[in-house]
Design a protein around this nucleic acid. Sequence first.
DNA 1: GTCTATAGAGTGATAGAC
DNA 2: GTCTATCACTCTATAGAC
Lengths: 187, 187
Amino acid sequence: MARAERSDLLPRLAEVFREHGYEGASLSLISQATGLGKGSLYHFFPGGKEEMAQAVLAEIDGWFAAQVFRPLREANDADADAAVAAMFGTVAAYFRSGRRVCLVGALSLSDARDRFGERLRAYFAEWVVALSQALVRAGHPPETADALAEEVVGGIQGALVLARALDRTEVFERILAGLRDRCAIRP
Amino acid sequence: MARAERSDLLPRLAEVFREHGYEGASLSLISQATGLGKGSLYHFFPGGKEEMAQAVLAEIDGWFAAQVFRPLREANDADADAAVAAMFGTVAAYFRSGRRVCLVGALSLSDARDRFGERLRAYFAEWVVALSQALVRAGHPPETADALAEEVVGGIQGALVLARALDRTEVFERILAGLRDRCAIRP
DNA sequence: GTCTATAGAGTGATAGAC
DNA sequence: GTCTATCACTCTATAGAC
């Protein structure tokens, strides 16, 4: 039986935090989800629950940097519009059409915001900047691109809230389609 | 010393739930915030913390019904556009430009969603329907009004997430201005 | 006495830290 | 596994209004 590695634990840890939030993710739930005893968990994360959540946030940040932010930044003028369109597909798949919560957004609304403040800020700030730059390269006026990017990134978070409250994934899909439409350049 | 009444407690209770979430709102915090001992709290809310949260949600629902949903529903064709505009002002004031969390939205993302599912669903469903009807009366095509209403109600929730994560109230104001603009009829 | 509101010690269960 | 702290909650006791 192969020994566990810290990086192998992160996806399961992330699911527990997404499903139960920071406070609701008890060590016994985490222990159950990972199959590891408390002793092993403290071996991998000496800082306890806070370090586990920080590691999860760092991994989410890394995934979005590679799969979402970088493609937006690296697109040139010719494929910037396609990169923006691809972002909506990537995001819809990641959030499973609204069935999966955005941990960063959920923590931003929760009591744990102060604990992870800078990480939450950096995630959304990087997303807005990368999207705004891609929108400009796609032909949007620079003076409105920042506001549009904020509206889109916020709109995705709102779509998650609404789809979850109404328990209807179509709402998520429909809002994302509308946002994608607003990013398209009209001749 | 005047005796407390259940209805006097609700605003303070609501603040505790908004600031700490359902799980984070411990009875000792609630006791401290209300100045009441556990005995008094269980006198008013025999069902404990869950009944407290249900009562808070019912009051929030009632406030929005009177201040937001009803004005939208009662507007006639001539003042529907003004009613929609007024909604944005009411909402911005209620959420203190993004400094205050929407308890309904936060619970929808949290572990407590299943506990309050129907209440959360009803709140957003009523908001979307009332707004959509007002948009139609203001002159929007009926076939796109539902989607626009979802985009606006979701957009407000997303604006709260983003403004809180970035810790910038201007982001909330700017997104709401953009949404209000999308509700205006263009000749 | 009854009713309503109050306070808080005490319950077992479970939390996170180690 | 062991630790202490804290959780939601119960229970008893007490106050004054009627």
